[in-house]
Nucleic acid binder design. Sequence first.
DNA 1: CTTGAACCTTCAGTGGCTAGAGGATGTAGA
DNA 2: TCTACATCCTCTAGCCACTGAAGGTTCAAG
Lengths: 142, 142
Amino acid sequence: MLTIGTLSKKTGTKVQTIRYYEQIGLMPEPGRTEGGQRRYDSSQLDRLSFIRHSRQLGFSLDAIRELLDLSDHPNRPCDEADAIARRQLKQVEQRMARLKALRTELKRMVHECSGGRTGDCKVLEVLRDHSECLTEHEEIGA
Amino acid sequence: MLTIGTLSKKTGTKVQTIRYYEQIGLMPEPGRTEGGQRRYDSSQLDRLSFIRHSRQLGFSLDAIRELLDLSDHPNRPCDEADAIARRQLKQVEQRMARLKALRTELKRMVHECSGGRTGDCKVLEVLRDHSECLTEHEEIGA
DNA sequence: CTTGAACCTTCAGTGGCTAGAGGATGTAGA
DNA sequence: TCTACATCCTCTAGCCACTGAAGGTTCAAG
């Protein structure tokens, strides 16, 4: 029987986060002591590890929900899990491409800064005038 | 005199977002018509373009606030603007490194999926057991 | 003068947590 | 057995950077 604090340490998840996962239905409601404190078993530890590891790989909580569901039904075809992972891979690749363009632009900005007054600062100038950019970087966020 | 809608179209910013920027003090309060509608001039258009472009390059609103402030004082030394840009560049590079590791892992997962039942699915197996990972990917988010 | 697109304010919600207040419980040592 | 105090509990609110919707008003073209 594991306390929430032990689970927290073993998985590197904050206590509040574990309670949050329970609240949104990602973790099952655990047993409780007479006094009302949560007690977990090893299957719940496994589940939390799965969640955390998936988060580290960038999956959204919604995606993780699907993956957990698939993991709970070992006889179903695994196309879906595969598709989710492929989607994630695609997203990661898109984000990388975007960051690459940003890096190019930022490098150029920093490189060209003369170190004088802000009035002549290349960094600020580039920000003022998009047309000075060599690469495209349309979307915000992502 | 530009309406908020015109500003929105010219900068690719949603109307609500412009009002939000005003609310948090990033955009100045514009003049109003008798009926209470906002009217902008070209300096406000420039400011919004600056903000948007900076956002596209991944700067936080706080960083943009500083950059705008520097841009408003052309006689100050530009070390600070340079430092902000360098910080941003460093962040972008860190994120890229992280995404690279994730991509490696995801590729391997997807590649090894046998296409059978979820019980044998390599994707789910890797998620279950972190020790199967070849790369490190500790931090979440970023 | 009428129409209707665009504007206004206000509030709530997104994702994925994180922090804090204020109080209850569990356990190890004396 | 008592006590100290680390850990637990619930509840609420906040973070970032928006986005959407409800319900009502204004402006400009025809």
